[in-house]
């Protein structure tokens, strides 16, 4: 899923004490071209995190010897800004806000599909690389002005509903990355829930009607079993 264009392999630090989960994540990441550094306890995790150069870190909340949130707090106070994805097991205090407050960048509750984790890790790595200070986004001939909220493709102006605009903005900010339906619900709608039917699909197809219909190249693609990707043609 990771684009092969990236020359340097990405290094991920995984701090997770559960053997099965760790193996599951390691395999998933390695299969997708990441290098994984795995430690099983909190103290070791913090030491490794301070020493190494990581592209992103995946840290479990409940760890022996040192709590996951405390690791993040220590890192942030040591001015280490590496993006962190917090994992939380079913049954633990499911408070995303607390996790994000201490400086975590994303939060994922176990159990999760590996695609979900991969998509989020990818987004985190990109976020670490690019600072979104620009006022214009563009993917291929699709352009978005973040100040005037004007969206055009090949000169044609689109009239988007506020939610469609936010949806497209999120997709464009993560262009080339697979975003899952859950990620869209969390970031565009700001709710964390499990829809019974794929409500997102209808929103996507509406958006597709506006930005892709009548154009030769399709920008908005569905990734089977995972989510969507907004891709500029090669």
């Amino acid at each position: 899923m990771v684009e092969k264009a990236n020359k340097r392999p990405r290094i991920v630090l995984l701090v997770e004490d559960d053997k099965n989960v760790a193996e599951f994540i390691c395999n998933g990441l390695r299969d997708n071209g990441y290098l994984v550094d795995h430690v099983a306890d909190g103290d070791m995790g913090l030491r490794r995190a301070k020493q190494g150069q990581f592209d992103t870190m995946i840290i479990d909340r409940m760890l022996p010897r040192r709590d996951g949130l405390s690791i993040i707090q220590s890192l942030r106070s040591a001015d280490i800004q590496t993006p962190v994805l917090v994992l939380s097991a079913l049954g633990e205090v499911d408070d995303r806000v607390k996790g994000l407050k201490v400086g975590a960048d994303d939060y994922l509750v176990k159990p999760f599909a590996i695609e979900e984790l991969l998509a989020r890790v990818e987004v985190l790595i990109r976020r670490g690389e690019v600072a979104h200070s620009e006022t214009r986004l563009s993917v291929g001939d699709l352009e978005m002005d973040l100040l005037t909220h004007k969206v055009t493709r090949a000169g044609q102006v689109f009239n988007l509903q506020p939610r469609e605009y936010r949806l497209l903005e999120y997709l464009m900010k993560h262009a080339g990355q697979v975003v899952t339906r859950t990620m869209l619900l969390e970031n565009v709608w700001d709710y964390h829930f499990d829809p019974q039917t794929n409500v997102i699909d209808v929103h996507i197809s509406r958006l597709r009607q506006k930005i892709d219909k009548g154009f030769e190249t399709q920008l908005l693609h569905t990734v089977r079993g995972t989510g969507y990707v907004l891709n500029a043609p090669e």
Binding site: N20, V21, F24, A89, L90, K110, P111, A113, E115, G225
Partner: peptide
């Protein structure tokens, strides 16, 4: 019960996810 359901959760999620990947 919680431990068991947590374990079941992980143990079932993983093969299910693999299954879906293979289908993909």
């Amino acid at each position: 019960v919680r431990r068991v359901s947590d374990n079941i959760a992980h143990d079932l999620r993983t093969p299910l996810t693999r299954l879906r990947n293979h289908v993909a």
